[in-house]
Amino acid sequence: TLGTQTDYRDGEAQTDPYSPEYIVRTSSVPEILTLATLTWGRGLPAGQAEMEIIDRIREKRAWEAALPPMDSPSNVAKRLRMMEHMERKEWAYREEEIDKLQKVQLEVFKKLLQRREENQNEQDAMHLYKHWQNHLKAKEEKMKNIQRDCALMLRKLIAKRKNFMGKLERRDIIKEYNDFSSPVYAPLSRVGFFPDKNTGYYAVKNFYLNTFQGLCELEGSVQASVSQLKIKAPKPKFTTTGYIKRSGRVEAVLAQVHQ
């Protein structure tokens, strides 16, 4: 045989291990054939449970080999006793397996119940939190309504206290115009006046500013002296001989004093 080496693992090259074909002789029963029902992923590789099954199969084969032949009444009676004993042993083993399966199912059932209870508790907590938030919102709305009604009643009481005798007072126009917080300058919206309603009425609407034709006419009416600026260069502060004038000396002294 030739050995090969690759960069890939066996698990990447094939999914299940290779099982070669075999031929069984008529006079022999290999022990390995008792594991023919086990396949990769279903019993293989063998664990503790599979090893117990293999041991039981070996014990059963040894027991079958130890059975006496049925050639005499004593051997027949002994064979029956051995078979009854093996049957009781098999039933005890099956009951033990059933108990194990029931315990496993019970543990799984407990975990499912615990998970369902946790989910139910989370949902209940969420419902309670939403219910509490709704109550808080209703409480805040109620408090706002109470405060608004309280302010309204206070204004009414203040207005009644100003004229508690019920006398009719003539409007004092001078006093109203002298007080900048009076309704003349700041009318209240609750009496039907909305200052922001007619804001466009006070906007400046000019033909010369809002239209292109008006801008052209406005530009044509402007004198040329406005658009053409004339900047005069400052005169030198010293003469051709290098002598600084008196105004230049005064400005230099003032600059030093300022510094």
Rank of each mutant, 00 (worst) to 15 (best):
Q147G: 06
R148P: 00
R148G: 04
R148Y: 02
D149S: 14
D149T: 11
C150E: 13
A151K: 14
L152I: 08
L152R: 14
L152P: 02
M153Q: 13
L154I: 14
L154W: 08
R155G: 10
K156G: 07
L157S: 04
I158D: 14
I158N: 12
A159S: 14
K160F: 09
R161F: 04
R161C: 03
R161V: 07
K162P: 00
N163P: 02
F164W: 12
M165Y: 07
M165N: 06
G166R: 04
G166H: 03
K167A: 05
E169M: 00
R170F: 02
R171V: 09
D172S: 12
D172C: 09
D172H: 08
I173T: 07
I174C: 10
K175N: 15
Y177I: 15
Y177R: 13
Y177A: 11
Y177W: 07
N178I: 01
D179R: 06
D179M: 00
P187E: 00
P187A: 00
L188R: 15
S189F: 04
S189E: 09
S189R: 11
S189Y: 03
V191I: 06
G192R: 01
G192A: 07
F193K: 05
F194E: 09
F194V: 07
P195S: 02
D196G: 09
D196I: 05
K197P: 01
N198V: 06
N198P: 02
N198F: 09
G200H: 04
G200R: 06
A203T: 09
A203P: 01
V204T: 08
V204E: 01
V204H: 03
K205A: 00
N206H: 03
F207M: 03
Y208P: 04
L209Y: 03
Q213C: 02
G214N: 01
C216Y: 11
E217S: 12
L218Y: 13
L218A: 15
G220Y: 06
S221G: 13
S221E: 14
V222Y: 02
V222M: 13
V222G: 02
V226L: 02
V226F: 00
Q228L: 10
Q228D: 08
L229S: 10
K230Y: 05
K230S: 12
K232G: 01
A233G: 00
P234L: 07
K235D: 04
F238H: 10
T239R: 12
T239K: 10
T240P: 01
T240W: 01
I244S: 11
K245N: 15
R246N: 15
S247Q: 14
